[in-house]
Amino acid sequence: MKNIFLIPLMFLTFLSLTACSPADDDSIIPEIPEQPENPGNGDSDDNNSEEPTDPTSGGNGRYLVLFTSRSGNTERMANEIRGQLDCDILEVEPQTAFEEDYNAMLERAREELDAIKQGNYPAVKTSMEDFESYDLVFVGYPIWYGSMATTMQSFLHGHASKLEGKRIALFATSGGSGISSSVREAETLCPDSEILDQALLLTSSSLSQMEIRVAEWLEGIGVGLEEPENSDVTSLKMNIVVGSRTISATMEDNAAARDLLSRLPMEVTLNDYNNTTEKIFYPNPELELDGVTRGCAPVPGDITIYAPWGNVAIFCKSWSHSNDLIKMGHIDGDGIEVLSVPGDVPVRFERTE
């Protein structure tokens, strides 16, 4: 008789267990967000704090490091870049702090990524007025489910117009997945910015090599620690690397030339102008012109600034006198022949020892 009652009881128990079993839809996850080494001790985030709009300044104000981080790994990477360049840095924070509970954070990350696909970006409490003073902006983030962390996606989406024309270098941390998808996201979010081809990714297996990996990456993209703006530029010589050839130039002792020398090394593309009469590029920010002597009748090899536009012009042919031209230097010997070719020319300006 007892067995008769046990059979329906066992059947009900089986139905109950089946109803509570989770679905298997989430069994394949492209990438799991970085998990803090010490759960509960991730990045602090006080929603009542004043909105951080001003970066922390460094000695080198030509570069800015933007980063968002939850576990602290991306923050460590950002600080390493800042330390090697002595540049400005700013943390991009969500309007609402991420949950300390790891599983809850994963769920929120998935929901926000899905919302972004529909054009709905989560709120962030970090903003900047402009990026005009920066030659290069570093953008760092953890990779969540193969994508750029939602906080940084929101920031870039909201600041895309202010980043127009700016060079952006991407760096990221992840548990093991690649960075290529997030690079494409950055290109979509900032279509009018120049996203550098070389991005740096550190995974859990390479975080211990952070210092050397960052140094190698910075060297690879032509970025290094520059002298402070108030330092003396004792040498007025520079090299111009064009492909496999290196030519030299002697600069004038004026504010514009010293400003240019203080920014080296620098990689630019010289654009052909006026049928190979001159090769030009636009420094950003514009060079210092206080106290410089204006007026020049350029000859082949002269390095000048056209004051109304702020562009550097290297003359390959002689031209008539202009009160708006400022001479900054002259290419030594017959080196100008290297630049006297049709079309645009990529070059690297370097300080001489």
Rank of each mutant, 00 (worst) to 15 (best):
1 M>T: 15
3 N>T: 12
8 P>V: 00
9 L>W: 06
9 L>R: 13
10 M>C: 15
11 F>T: 15
22 P>H: 14
34 E>I: 13
37 E>Q: 14
39 P>M: 11
42 G>Q: 05
42 G>R: 04
47 N>F: 05
48 N>M: 04
49 S>N: 10
51 E>A: 10
55 P>Q: 04
59 G>Q: 02
59 G>K: 06
60 N>Q: 11
65 V>S: 01
69 S>P: 08
70 R>M: 13
71 S>G: 14
73 N>R: 07
74 T>P: 06
77 M>N: 06
77 M>C: 05
79 N>K: 13
81 I>E: 02
84 Q>Y: 03
86 D>N: 14
86 D>R: 03
90 L>H: 01
103 N>H: 11
111 E>N: 15
112 E>S: 02
116 I>W: 01
122 P>M: 04
125 K>S: 06
125 K>D: 05
127 S>H: 08
131 F>Y: 14
132 E>F: 00
134 Y>S: 01
134 Y>E: 05
137 V>L: 00
137 V>F: 09
138 F>V: 02
140 G>H: 03
141 Y>D: 00
143 I>R: 08
145 Y>K: 11
153 Q>W: 06
154 S>P: 08
162 K>M: 10
164 E>G: 02
167 R>E: 12
167 R>Q: 10
168 I>T: 09
171 F>T: 01
179 I>Y: 02
183 V>P: 04
183 V>I: 09
185 E>W: 00
186 A>S: 07
194 E>F: 01
194 E>S: 03
196 L>I: 10
200 L>K: 00
201 L>M: 02
202 L>M: 10
211 E>G: 13
214 V>R: 09
219 E>W: 07
221 I>F: 11
223 V>P: 11
225 L>Y: 13
226 E>K: 10
227 E>F: 14
228 P>D: 13
229 E>N: 11
230 N>Y: 12
230 N>L: 14
238 M>V: 13
239 N>K: 15
239 N>P: 14
245 R>I: 08
248 S>T: 15
249 A>C: 09
253 D>I: 09
254 N>L: 01
255 A>H: 01
257 A>G: 04
258 R>P: 10
260 L>S: 03
260 L>T: 12
263 R>T: 11
267 E>W: 01
270 L>D: 08
271 N>S: 12
273 Y>W: 10
273 Y>K: 03
280 I>H: 00
282 Y>H: 11
285 P>K: 08
289 L>E: 05
289 L>Q: 01
291 G>R: 05
291 G>E: 04
292 V>M: 06
294 R>Q: 06
297 A>Y: 03
297 A>Q: 12
298 P>Q: 00
298 P>A: 01
298 P>K: 04
300 P>K: 03
300 P>N: 05
302 D>A: 10
305 I>A: 06
306 Y>N: 05
310 G>R: 00
315 F>D: 03
316 C>F: 00
316 C>N: 12
321 H>Q: 09
324 D>P: 12
328 M>W: 04
329 G>R: 06
329 G>V: 06
331 I>C: 03
337 E>W: 12
339 L>S: 03
339 L>Y: 07
342 P>I: 04
342 P>K: 02
343 G>E: 07
343 G>N: 01
344 D>C: 05
347 V>E: 07
352 T>N: 15
353 E>H: 13
